[in-house]
Design a protein around this nucleic acid. Structure first.
Lengths: 234, 234
DNA sequence: CGAACAATTGAATCCTTTCAAAGGGAGTGG
DNA sequence: CCACTCCCTTTGAAAGGATTCAATTGTTCG
């Protein structure tokens, strides 16, 4: 299971030499395992998950082709599992920050770290929404963006996975999906495939300010009493 | 407001030369500002926050002495504000991964990145709890750990801050604090100071598995039907 | 001392969960 | 090929918890 590398390994070879395959539903690594590698998804979908003491599961992210996961220090804080059949590229986790000849690897690792951070922030963003409809709208928009919203958007993960990602129950997820469909915001073509029918309404629900970014010069922000109060930095 | 640096600046000097002070409640940087620096807290408490489109505020972290914040790429995704009067050390955000002579700075930046990731994961952990009591218990334990739980634990932030951090309302936060006090899990000595009376019960509420770490060899985990099902990796 | 703001508390409402059951595919075995 | 089972999903009804609405108390600061 564990493979040893020579010290001055060509990064390109290291990357491609270990294309791993996991069947649907299998564990890639466990919570608590020593964090020896980080992974890049070549195909399929991966979920990272953690169990709370009361037994309930929390999914901290879904990872698609091109995404990276497992970027952690010391021991994995969360497990990783294959949502679908999956192909991975495994990367070494260099312990020391400045390994001899590790310039490129270090840059790689830092890039991976940045992407891990972005992924965590995405998760926080989702959980920051107040209602089930808002969370779900934000989630659906995210995966639509990832997988190309062109036509039907595949939903590879189960309702249980979505629920544990959004901090809801499968019932609420299912109900809310039906409700969104009833209101013609989305079209449901089976449980694993949907279509975005009213992107504007969905974005409004999700509180998605994608089109125009807000800046401090934006009058919208300038007028907020909150900001007026606080914009007196030393 | 913006300061220009020479290219090959001594990292040590860069760090200490710019000890910044912010008054309570003031903005350190805005959401949307170009992310030119990251910060280290020397004293006081900082909060990072973001506004959702519906106007509601989400606090993604509190940062105490020794913590770092503002580690982002391109533009800040969230604003930073002083919860109390605050002293900061400002660090350059090197854009290119390998700047000449930037070895140490790069290591620093990567460390900062790791800590930012840990902070984000802490936030996810809090929001992953189901009930108000669980979230609050986890939050109180966290700040008690941070500030030394010896005796009275100071709560520098307002109820509104706590609410926006845990995804609750100030009413629920206040009610739940009172309830925890009524059950003798904590003692309230004013709104900004509490005492942990029953750490075990609090940890149980928070689902805090601090004492014993769970590993794959733990029979507790080995017996989970979920794991039995999935532990057949390729 | 009064004003302004933060925190607490009560009551009603709303949303999510829980409890319960039914519908719908996929795969197995007769 | 069909019946049967299992599991996932959907939906209904009741219960529980957080929010909202409303009001009071407490604190800080001019």
């Amino acid at each position: 299971m564990m493979t040893l590398y020579t010290r001055h390994l060509d990064p390109a070879r290291a990357s491609t030499a270990h294309a791993l395959h996991h069947h649907k539903g299998t564990v890639i690594y466990f919570e608590g395992d020593p964090a020896r590698h980080w992974y890049e998804v070549l195909g399929g979908v991966v979920r990272t998950c953690r169990f709370h003491a009361d037994g309930h599961r929390q999914l901290t992210g879904f990872f698609y082709s091109g995404d990276v996961f497992g970027v952690e220090d010391g021991f994995y804080q969360e497990a990783a599992e294959a949502v679908t059949a999956v192909t991975l590229r495994r990367h070494e986790h260099e312990q020391a920050p400045s390994v001899d000849g590790g310039d490129e690897a270090m840059g790689q690792s830092e890039t991976a770290l940045r992407r891990a951070l972005a992924s965590a922030q995405q998760c926080i963003f989702l959980l920051g929404h107040r209602t089930a409809a808002e969370r779900l709208a934000a989630f659906l928009l995210t995966i639509a963006r990832r997988l190309g919203a062109a036509e039907g958007v595949p939903v590879p993960m189960s309702r249980a996975d979505i629920a544990d990602h959004l901090g809801l129950t499968i019932h609420t997820v299912s109900r809310t999906m039906s409700e969104l469909a009833r209101q013609k915001l989305i079209g449901l073509e089976g449980p694993q495939l949907f279509r975005i029918l009213n992107a504007a309404a969905l974005r409004e629900l999700a509180g998605d300010a994608e089109p125009e970014r807000l800046t401090r010069d934006d009058p919208e922000i300038a007028m907020r009493p909150y900001d007026r109060l606080l914009f007196n930095s030393v």
